[in-house]
Write a protein that binds this DNA or RNA. Structure first.
Lengths: 356, 356
DNA sequence: CCGCAGTGTCGAACCGGTTCGACACTGCCT
DNA sequence: AGGCAGTGTCGAACCGGTTCGACACTGCGG
C-alpha cells in the first residue's frame, strides 16, 4: 500500500544481500557462484536474500572483474543492391543460438564495418565476433586478426587465417543444380546470377556458384547461358523476358538471384509458360522465402539460420574453453540440399519457345 | 620485425597513458573528457599518448563508473505466422539511428520477451529499451514499467502509460485506402487482412485498419467484403481465388497481408486479369518490399525504418537529458502516405468477373 | 597431545574507469 | 603585504562485482 516505493530506488547489490544474509560480500559471491564450498545453511540464507531483494548482478561490474561480457558482436553488412530481408535469417540464427548458450548479441549494422569492429572489440564490449556477408577481400578481417578476440565468419574470404569460416558449399550447389537438370534430360540451361557489382565488391559466392555451374555444364555437355541479372523490379523481369526470347531452346532455368525468383511467376504467366511443363526451374534461396512468396520452385536451401548457428557455436566454444581457444581454425562448407517442390521435370518437345 | 609482440598483449588502460604522459590517472581522465580545465600542454601529451598506445576506454569499467552503458536494448518479437523479413526494416531503423546518436544496439530475439526484458534491464546492460511489434496487451509492458528504465514502443498497446509510443496511424490508413478507391468510383471492395490469430494474439493493428476500412466503407456507401487471409503459400493464393470467385462485382482489392500481396501477381495472371484495368489494387507494406518483388502496386507505406528511428530518438533524449526524462509521455501516430504505382484506376464496366 | 588436512568464512585487493575535495601556484586588487 | 579568485593537478574514494590468501575451527590419525 506504499504509494511510492522509490525511496528504495537504488538497485540492489551483492553487498545488500550479504548484509541481509549476515555474511561478507565474498561469502555471498561464493555462495551464489558455488566456486568454493559453503555451508548449506549460509548458502540458503544468501539465496533467500537474493530472491527476496530481487538481486541481479550488474553486468558492467561483472565484466570488469571477470574480463568476460557474455555478449557477442554481430557485424551485419548491408549493400544497396542485395536483398536485405534475406539477411534476417542469418541474424536470427546467430541471436537465437547465442541466447541458448547464455550470450547476448550486440548487433552492428554500421556501414563502416571495419571501424565498428575496432570499436566494439577494443572497448571490450564483446567476447567475440561473428561477421556476416564476408567478402573475398574483406576489410574487416585484418582488424579482426589484430583485435585478439576470436571471430567466426559466415561467408568465405580469400584468406581464412585465424578465423573459423562457415558457408554454403556453392561449388557443390552449382554441380547439384546442373546434375539434377542433366539427369532429367535437359541439355540447354540459363543461369541468372546476382548483379555483376555484387561480384566486383567481393561477393565471391556469386562466381563460386557460377563457375561451378559453367564447369559442370561443360562436363555434362550442356549448353549454358550465364548472365548477371539486375536486383530490382521491374528490370529483372524485363531481363528474364529478354533471356527467354534469346534462348528459346533452353528448357531449364537456374536462379541465384532473389529478385529474379520473385519476378518469375509473373514472367512465366505473361509468356503463358508453366513450370515444369514448359520450363524447369531451380532456385537458390531460403525455405522461409519460398514459403512466404509465390515460389513453389525447387531450390537449394541457403541454410542461413543454420550457418549463423554454427558460427556462434564455434565462437562460443573458443571463448569459453581454454583448450578450444587454440584449436586449429577450420573452414566448414555446408553440403547443399535440393528441396524438390515440383518445378523441375523432363523437358518436353513443346519447349518454352512455343507459345500455347 | 618482432615475430611475437604479444608480450605486450595486456590491453592499455588509462593508467598506462597517464604514466606515459607523466600525469595522474585523474588528470588523464580529465584531459580526455574535458570536464575540467587542463593546460593545453598536458592535454596534448595525454592525447598523444592515447593515440600512440591505441587507447580505448573499457566499456564495462566506464559503465560501472558512470551508470551509463551507451547501449540500448532492442526487443524484437517474432511469431510463426507473421512475415519475419518485414521486421528487418524496423531493426535497421533502430540500429542505424542508435549508432548515429552514439549508442550500440543489443538485439534480443528471445521468444520469452518479458523474461529477456527483465534480464537486460535489471543487469543494467542497457540504458533504455525499444520494443517492437507491441501487442494490445503486451506482457512485456508491466515488466518495462517496473524496470525503471525508459522505453519506447513501436506498435500501439492498450495502455500507453509510462512509455513513448510510435506507430503508423492504421485508422487513417484505412480511411485513406477507402477514400482513394471511392474517389475513383469504386463501390464494391474486398479487404484481405492478416490471419485471424494475429488479431487474437493482440496484433491490434490488424483490426485497427480493418475497423476503419469497414466504417469508412459504410460511410461512403461502399459494399465491403472483409476477410482474414492465410499468411503462407499456396493457401493465400487459393483464398484470393475463392474471394474473387465469390465477389465477381468487386472492382477493388485492399491488402493488409504481405503473403497475399506476394501471391497476387500469379493469381491475377491465372484469372487473366490486369491491374488496374480489371481490378484496382492497394497494398500496405514497405517500399523496399515493393521494390524487390514483383509488386508494382500502389501502397500505403508501412514506414518501418522511420518508426524505428523515431523511437530511438525519443528514447535517447530521455536517457541523456535530465529534463527530458520527466517529459510527458506521448503517442505518435504517423500519417499514412499513399504511393501511387499505378495499380488503381476507375472501375470499368468489364469488371473482373468477366473472363477475357 | 600434537600436527595436519579439510571446511567454511572473511578481509583486502583488483578490474578500469570517473569524480569529488584538497591544494599549490599564479596574478590581481586593495 | 595580505587576501582572493581562478587555474591546473593530484590523491583517494567509489561503482559492483570476483578472487586470492589467511585464518579459525573441526575431526582425524599417529
Amino acid at each position: 500500500m506504499t504509494e511510492r516505493t522509490d525511496q528504495a530506488e537504488r538497485t540492489v547489490t551483492i553487498g545488500d544481500i550479504a548484509s541481509a544474509a549476515g555474511v561478507s560480500r565474498s561469502t555471498a559471491s561464493y555462495a551464489l557462484s558455488g566456486k568454493r564450498s559453503i555451508s548449506t545453511e549460509v548458502r540458503q540464507r544468501v539465496a533467500d536474500a537474493a530472491r527476496e531483494l530481487g538481486y541481479t548482478p550488474n553486468a558492467g561490474a561483472r565484466a570488469l572483474a571477470t574480463a568476460q561480457t557474455k555478449v557477442i558482436g554481430l557485424l551485419a553488412q548491408f549493400h544497396e543492391d542485395e536483398f536485405a530481408p534475406a539477411m534476417l535469417q542469418y541474424i536470427l540464427g546467430v541471436s537465437d543460438t547465442a541466447r541458448e548458450l547464455g550470450y547476448d548479441t550486440l548487433l552492428v549494422s554500421e556501414a563502416d564495418g571495419a571501424r565498428a569492429l575496432a570499436r566494439i572489440t577494443s572497448s571490450r564490449m564483446v567476447d567475440g565476433v561473428v561477421l556476416l556477408n564476408v567478402a573475398q577481400d574483406d576489410p574487416r578481417l585484418p582488424l579482426l586478426r589484430a583485435a585478439g578476440q576470436p571471430g567466426a565468419l559466415v561467408g568465405l574470404p580469400g584468406d581464412c587465417d585465424g578465423v573459423d569460416v562457415f558457408d554454403l558449399d556453392f561449388e557443390a550447389a552449382g554441380r547439384l543444380m546442373v546434375d539434377h537438370m542433366h539427369r532429367l534430360g535437359h541439355r540447354e540451361l540459363i543461369l541468372v546470377s546476382q548483379p555483376e557489382h555484387v561480384v566486383e565488391r567481393g561477393g565471391a559466392y556469386v562466381w563460386r556458384l557460377q563457375d561451378s555451374v559453367v564447369q559442370q555444364a561443360a562436363a555434362r555437355g550442356i549448353r549454358l547461358h550465364a548472365v548477371f541479372g539486375p536486383s530490382g523490379q521491374p528490370e529483372v523481369g524485363r531481363a528474364l523476358h529478354r533471356l527467354l526470347d534469346a534462348h528459346p531452346a533452353a528448357t531449364g532455368l537456374l536462379l541465384n538471384n532473389e529478385a529474379a525468383a520473385a519476378a518469375l511467376p509473373s514472367v512465366l504467366h505473361e509468356r503463358g509458360l508453366r513450370a515444369p511443363r514448359d520450363l524447369s526451374v531451380i532456385g537458390r534461396y531460403s525455405d522461409e522465402f519460398a514459403r512466404m512468396f509465390s515460389l513453389p520452385y525447387s531450390a537449394v536451401e541457403s541454410a542461413a539460420h543454420r550457418l549463423g548457428e554454427l558460427a556462434v557455436r564455434r565462437l562460443v566454444r573458443r571463448v569459453t574453453s581454454a583448450e578450444a581457444r587454440t584449436d586449429p581454425y577450420t573452414v566448414e562448407l555446408l553440403a547443399p540440399e535440393l528441396t524438390d517442390r515440383g518445378s523441375t521435370g523432363r523437358p518436353t518437345p513443346t519447349a518454352q519457345g512455343e507459345t500455347p
